[in-house]
Design a protein around this nucleic acid. Structure first.
Ligand SMILES: [Zn+2]
Ligand SMILES: [Zn+2]
Ligand SMILES: [Zn+2]
Ligand SMILES: [Zn+2]
Lengths: 162, 162
DNA sequence: TGGTTTATGTTATTACATAACAGAAGGCGG
DNA sequence: CCGCCTTCTGTTATGTAATAACATAAACCA
């Protein structure tokens, strides 16, 4: 992110290719279980997001999609919408970016869910944390508001960047 | 917003001009108290946002800025950044829009603060609610994460639109 | 008043996202 | 296997959101 920080960002680790393959296989199984198709562009999009293990811009996916040139935006935006519906990725609103859902990281099958994120403004790393939201739920029902989805994003500095 | 809902949106009330003038005067005083200047473009931008009493797109402000034609984007984006720093407006990340801070609605002077929003996907109305975030604070400190600001937005249907 | 800082005007560009339609691929009853 | 329908993809074009860079002007201060 902002690299005027005087320290390196080696602590933003990537996944090795075996781990990525495993995640891609899981994703395929999850789609089949739901009667949805994990097609080539969807898989490729997910692969590129898993490669980063941090929020990725749509146009970074677009640029890297083919070995020899960019994809067309609708190809990737459609795949992103699909993957989000499947609960495989989350959109980070405050960054206009997408990150793989960590709920699938250790083999558990997870329903699509609201998630909260700790987002480092220095190294760009993202941590997905599970939280309940009793206060806003209470405020919502006090107002007669029916919540469909919640965005909760904390921006700041990760442990390594403080 | 999505007006395929079969009901009107009369419940999205606007502020009368006297009330808007009062808010603008308060805003001016608040800036002076901080040693900042409430200039014409800043005031005009705030006025256009108060006129809506709901989240407004930057380009709507740009289009309405002059009686006879649009403003240049940087004029408005700079004003928006300033107003947000002053705590007079909030950016709604999930809508790419801006809304007046309700903390100034009844004459109290409020520090810049994190706020949560109940955002109706049908009529476009916004309600600012105050919440504390014990869980994410706890998760953050458990991870050694230093939070600088938090985005919390609930999307759904307001009481009148359910 | 002269120098410094802060804000604005202006042009141009970059980044982010979707509409619309044509064509291909998969699923399914016959 | 065929025909039909549905879903997905390819492609062109456009729409929407935001900022870079630099010149000018206004406010502030000594
Ligand atoms: Zn998740
Ligand atoms: Zn970091
Ligand atoms: Zn507020
Ligand atoms: Zn509503």
């Amino acid at each position: 992110m902002s690299h005027a920080c005087g320290h390196d960002h080696d602590h933003v680790h990537t996944l090795d290719s075996g781990r990525i393959d495993a995640r891609l296989s899981e994703a395929r199984r999850l789609c089949e279980a739901k009667g949805e198709r994990m097609t080539a562009p969807r898989l490729r999009t997910l692969e590129l997001i898993l490669n980063e293990n941090a929020p990725v811009k749509a146009y970074d996916v677009i640029d890297r999609f083919h070995p020899d040139g960019a994809a067309k935006p609708p190809t990737v935006y459609r795949a992103l919408a699909f993957l989000e519906q499947m609960g495989l990725i989350h959109r980070i609103e405050s960054l206009n970016a997408f990150v793989a859902c960590q709920g699938h990281a250790d083999g558990k099958a997870v329903q699509p869910h609201a998630a909260a994120f700790l987002l480092c403004d220095c190294c760009g790393s993202s941590e997905e944390v599970a939280v309940s939201l009793p206060e806003i739920d209470q405020q919502a029902s006090a107002s007669g508001f029916e919540t469909r989805r919640v965005t909760l994003e904390a921006r700041g500095l990760c442990k390594a960047c403080r």
